[in-house]
Write a protein that binds this DNA or RNA. Structure first.
Lengths: 225, 225
DNA sequence: TTTGATTTTTAGGTTAATCTAAAAATATTT
DNA sequence: AAATATTTTTAGATTAACCTAAAAATCAAA
């Protein structure tokens, strides 16, 4: 049975929504993610259900079957590996690679993914810090916390972002807060939930709530006090 | 104006047919190259003519316009650069890369081709010895002759193939006649147009007409006699 | 718990890209 | 130059993937 690109993309969207919200994906949510309409999604859901890639109950949302899950995971794996290629090998910035990876992930070829993986040195995370599932679909987990959850004195290194927009990624670049950047939380401002931090090179920055809610860090040690 | 993948593929087929036959491409020839039907091609030709990518005269065949030519050339450039990537970087054999490159050539992205080109070191030929046009669409020419045209005593190095089938490429691998392999023509057999050659490492091979008609070499020196 | 709002589905298109079968044009051969 | 063969086009379908507008189902709230 052949799976089209549009079908693959819908499976990926369903996977991501179900993962984030931890419940069946709803038609509207999928439509928003795919930039299409609810009617188009309903159409597609029927097709995916016919192919046993999802379990679809009218008006109740959808869940991936084992096979649907496998396909979505493989697609995410390919997407993220190509993102690593584009940044590491071709020198693109982390805010430029999404659209290209979106196309590259659909390229089919015996051994293509595994050879790409080997060529890249079996990376575990993509340029945005998102984990890359292995060939068997296993995920690498790690402790990371939103910057909102840190307390004054806590230090951490940037491990990922929640907002993947080019605007946010470029802003982080401007601030010198790429993946791996270390910072210490100096102060929290309850008024607007902004925070003051100190970077490794001694710069002090004030980060808005919008930033702190979208930045993940792994905590390096307890607060110094 | 958007150009679809199917349209791009037809332009490429038209380019290759017109180049090889040195005259307008005919409907049937395009259909054969695209593995579709004459009726489908006629349909597509109308669409391409509407977009001013070809000059189409009913029953008379088609030629590319300047813009059509530009698109076809860019596509061939991308295809061949990706083939270099797949062989040089991912370790695929020259008979395995065509189908993947066929998909990769359609991936769109600002600077993607130029960065790939740079990453690969601006290769001038693909893994089959076919020239890679530069960013401005300029081709690299070089002298090469079909093995059929060599005379006893002539020596040459393999520069390319006419038949790109996996079967032929694999057979050449078996014979140790990859790109760059050197050989000397020892003897021609008029009966079946086969030839006897000696390879660099002293092996003697008899090559059928089917092989000699599909193998290009650059002649290294005049015959020794 | 009925009413109003929201979400989802259905009904009925559209477009690109294909197809087959039949008609028309061109080419070939006697 | 007719007759025949071949090629090409037209006519009419089909399928995937979308769309809008209207109907139906579910949810929220007075």
């Amino acid at each position: 049975m052949t799976i089209t690109q549009a079908e693959e993309n819908h499976l990926k969207a369903i996977f991501k929504i179900a993962e984030k919200e931890d419940k069946p994906a709803l038609t509207n949510a999928i439509a928003a993610a795919m930039h299409t309409t609810a009617a188009s999604v309903t159409d597609m859901l029927k097709r995916l259900a016919d192919k046993n890639l999802i379990v679809y109950e009218k008006y109740r949302g959808v869940q991936l079957t084992g096979e649907g899950n496998r396909i979505a995971t493989a697609l995410i794996r390919k997407h993220r590996l190509w993102e690593v290629f584009l940044t590491e090998k071709l020198g693109f910035a982390w805010d430029e690679v999404h659209d290209m990876a979106e196309q590259l992930e659909h390229v089919q070829g015996e051994h293509l993914v595994s050879r790409l993986d080997t060529f890249l040195g079996h990376p575990k995370f993509d340029p945005h810090g998102d984990p890359i599932p292995d060939a068997e679909g296993r995920w690498t987990y790690r402790k990371q916390s939103l910057l909102t959850t840190l307390l004054p004195g806590d230090r951490g290194a940037v491990t990922g972002v929640d907002d993947h927009s080019a605007a946010f990624l470029q802003y982080l670049d401007q601030l010198g807060l790429g993946l791996g950047a270390e910072l210490e939380l100096l102060e929290r401002f309850p008024y607007d939930h902004s925070v003051r931090v100190r970077t490794r090179d001694g710069r002090e920055l004030v980060l808005s709530e919008k930033v702190t809610k979208n930045l993940y860090l792994n905590i390096l040690s307890d607060r110094e006090s």
